[in-house]
Structure formats: structure tokens, C-alpha cells
Design a binder for these strands. Sequence first.
RNA 1: UACCCGGUGGUGUAAUGGUAACACAAGGGUUUUUGGUACCCUCGUUCCUGGUUCGAGUCCAGGCCGGGUAGCCA
Length: 557
Amino acid sequence: MSSESVDFIREHINADLAKGRYDRVHTRFPPEPNGYLHIGHAKSICLNFGIARDYNGLCNLRFDDTNPTKEEVEYVDSIMEDVRWLGFDWEDRLFYASDYFDQLYAWAEKMVLAGQAYVCDLTADEVREHRGTLTSPGRNSRFRDRSADENLDLFRRMRAGEFPDGSRTLRAKVDMASPNFNMRDPVMYRILHATHHRTGDKWCIYPTYDYTHGQSDSLEGITHSICTLEFENHRPLYDWYVKTLGIHHSRQIEFARLNLTYTMMSKRRLLELVKEGVVEGWDDPRMPTICGFRRRGYTPEAIRNFCAKIGVAKVDSVIDLALLEHCLRDDLNRRAARVMAVLNPLKIVITNYPEGSVDELEAVNNPEDPAMGMRKVPFSREIWIEQDDFKEDPPKGFYRLSPGKEVRLRWAYLITCTNVVKDPATGAIVEVHCTYDPATRGGNAPDGRKVKSTIHWVSAARALQAEVRIYDNLFTVPDPSDVPQGQDYKINLNPKSLEVLPCCRVEPSLADAKVQDRLQFERLGYFCVDRDSKPGKLVFNRTVSLRDSYAKVEKKK
RNA sequence: UACCCGGUGGUGUAAUGGUAACACAAGGGUUUUUGGUACCCUCGUUCCUGGUUCGAGUCCAGGCCGGGUAGCCA
């Protein structure tokens, strides 16, 4: 691959290939199954699988499951589903770090015998105390110089379950004075009498991430091990292990994780939102999880395109949510069928339209794609329009319906507002009376007169009832974690992130809409059929609104 | 305070010693049976100071600012 502008990772790969350091490209996506994947993982997935595709290489899916206390099969299942949904395929290369426990253990014994690792009896507190500080070197553990025989005996007994959790560790003998903490005799194995989701109770000692990752990469023949910036300081240790063991050496390259405005990406906090019921679950349409986006109506194409557009670098950056939404609209604009739906209904009576008669009008399904064809929409004397599309006292710049004004009903007729009917008690508008011009069927006036506005509508006689859920950002500020001293990020939660509209009216063509179908409600936005939807009881999620330049004008006032 | 990594429009990404480009956002306009879409225009002397060079965003030195790191988490 030698195109004009490539990111720094591909630059490294190109250089490695040119130098002959590797003669192929093999990457991996290595999530820990301790939570659901989010949009930040999508960046990593697109990178790893995308690089493999670009270089005619391979990409593995590997679960980094070295900590049984946090991992569950529920998470491994969801991760596989999400990676597939995003459009990537690991073929037969599904691996688990736990597949390598035996090999890892054998290597550890080898290091013990070579005097490169030792069993340390220091408590966690003592280890921390021996580690030193940012400015001062650490001190050697008093167990550092045990004989190989004693170490081997102790390590085997650790494995045999003779010791309680936390009583001992196996540590690599590196350098307690290193300026890099990761090199100050890092722990390789800890005692954890816990049941692992795959290996069950076979083990009561588990390898740490640092002792596992490079070796797993090595065993799988990975060439480029791409991870996020916080592992930069771990690279010397990563390199140390594979060099010490003398095994295939993958190259670790770090990039900056994705941050999005108005979004919280921390797994811990997302878990908290789920557990505390702030959201309805991991796939709540407001969640930045892959399954949340899926339920919200996002397409994998939009997410992939977004990942391609944000690029990859080493600077900490925050991407504007607007870019994600732009990618979404861009995709949905091309593929979503147009349909008419009224969210906040206002009744219109066409006083000169014959009672009881219904007219089937032709409507274009998608102006961006003629192949999507046409459909019929029924028109009748009473119709619903959007409350926002009528104003008794229209402000300047409002060119929808108001008394005396003529507008076009999409695909139907030109109508003129003649009269407003109000509740005598409350003064609230009950219905609006209009007349239609029969000569304008389809929407054009034979005399060539123009109207400023076209509004959507639904036949009252034939409308279907629907519930529509309007979603907004979960947080009200661009950086939700930016809170005053002592405050919680939850103060930034958006109390109006979900608004349920139970009595919407949609056109009858939606009667057999299927779960996950994506549509554009004309002039409103893109919506999808929620999994709560049933034949008699339609439920739609608003995926994203349409861009709305009138809303901006209104807001400015 | 030690080590590591960064710093280009409002945001993100390019430019690999030779006219700072592209996208999003914002603002303005054209077209339009969606106030949508599409199209056009406007919007940065590259953190600072020195140096090398005919020429520096790019190379060098020093500074400033931001991020990461002291789990038996990953």
C-alpha cells in the first residue's frame, strides 16, 4: 500500500515492510470481556481490521481474559455480535488469552529457572511501598534473591493452591531503579481463587496483562500490536518479555483513544449508568455503546465512515459529535425511505373536501434514489399536521400555515387557512379549518402560483397510532467529566435526554414496518422501529433529526 | 518533582525542507414540492524564542503548555 497520505501507523508499517522487519501484516483486536463495546472500540476495530484489509493481511479477534473477577460470557457474546454487526470478520481466528495459560505458565517456570523471575512474599502494601515514587527509585524486595529451586517450589505451590489470595506473587526481575514504574519488578502472576468463565477452576493463579499480551501476540504471529496511548509506558516491558523469552516479536504501536463531545466513554461510568438505572440498559439508544447506536438506528456504514474520517494520531483529541451525526445523515439520506408522520398532531378540517371520500395520492419514496419507487398515501377531509406548522400569529420568517396563508400539503394539495376553532373555556386551539384548491392535486397550481412552504400531514381517517421516542444527548455539556471540585459527572446528565410521545400519527404504509427498519419522517428526522414495537403498537426511535435551519433562526431570537 | 508522549483554523486530520490542503462546525448565498439534499462563498502568518538553510509547520537547541504513569486492572 503506497497511497499519498497515510496515518502514522501505516507509515510505520510501510517502513517495517520496506526494511524487511516483517513480510506480512497481521493485527488483532483484543478486548477484555468486562463490558460492552463502545464507539471508542469501533475506532480500534476499524483500525485493526482496516489495516489488515489494506495490506492483504489478517486480523484476529482475541479476548484478553486474564482477570476472571471482572469477565463474563455475556460480554464475550455481545462483543462478537457487535464486531460482526460493524461488518468485520475474524474468520476462524477467534482466540482467548486463556488459551495460552499453559504456555504462559511454562514460560514463567523457564524464567524462574533462569533467575529472571522470583516469588515475592511482600503484601500489596509492601510492594507499593518498595516501588518508590516518581522521583525516587524503588527498593529491592527481600525475596528477590531466593534460589531458583526455592522459587520454582514456591511457584508450583502457588499454582497448586497452597496459598491464599494476595499472599505471594511471581515477579519479573528487571530493575527496581528504572524511571519507568512498569520495569520495577512487575508482577507476572497473582493468586486469585476465582472461577474463570472459560477455564473454570483449573487455575488459581492468573497472569497479568503485561505478562500476557506480548506473548499472546507472539503466539498468534501478530506483526503490529496496535493499542491506546496509556500503554506507551508499558512498551519497554512488552519488549522485555518477548526478548527475554526469545520469541517472535510483534511491534506495539500506540494511538490516541477516541473522545466525543457530549459523550462519556469510561466503561466504569457506563456500567454505573446501567446499574443505577439512569439508562435502561447497555443498549439504551442514548448509550455510546455499539449496541446502543444500533438500537438508536445508526448504520454500521455510518460508523465505519466516521472512523475513517476522524483519522488516527497520538494527540489527545475530542471529536465533535456533529461529525458522527453528519456521517449518519449522509448515509441515511441515501438509503432511508421517506414517509410522513406527525409527532404532535393538530387537526385540520378541509371544509370544501367531500366528507367520507378518500383519495390515493402518489408519493416519492426517496428523491435521492428513484429506484426506491413510489407509494400511495390516502388523503381525506380531516388530516393531522404538526402543531409547530401552524401559528395563529406568525412571527417574521415563519412561512408555514397561519390564518389567510396558503401552503402545500406534501404530494397533495394547496390549502388555505380560513378559520381557527378554539375551546371556549380554555382558548386552546381545537382544530383549524382550511379550504383546498382541487386544481392543485399533486401539489402544483396550474396558474403557476407559488407557496413558500410545504408541510407534511397524515390522513386522520387512515392514520396509525404510534409511540415515538425522541432522544437527545445524555449530557448537556461538551465535556461531561468537567465538573467543579467535589462534584459528580452526573450533574451534567441531561434531564431531557428522552421524551416519549405516545400519540403520534403515521401514514398507513408503516403498518408492517419491521424492527430495525430505518425511515425518514419527512421534515423531522431519521427514525427506526424499536424492538419494543409490535404490529398493533408501533414504536419508533428518533435516530437523529434532520438539519434544521429554521430552528437555528428561531433559536437566535 | 522523575520518566514517557504530544502541541497546525472553533473541531479533527493532511502537507515527509519548496504556494498550509481536506472534512465537520459556524456564518452568508443559489437551487428545491422536505426550512432536508445538492452547489457556491467566508473563516489559520502552524505554542514561544533562537539557530541551520536560498527557503522551516517540517531539522536543531532552549522554554512554555497539555496528557499519561506510582493496581497483585486492562
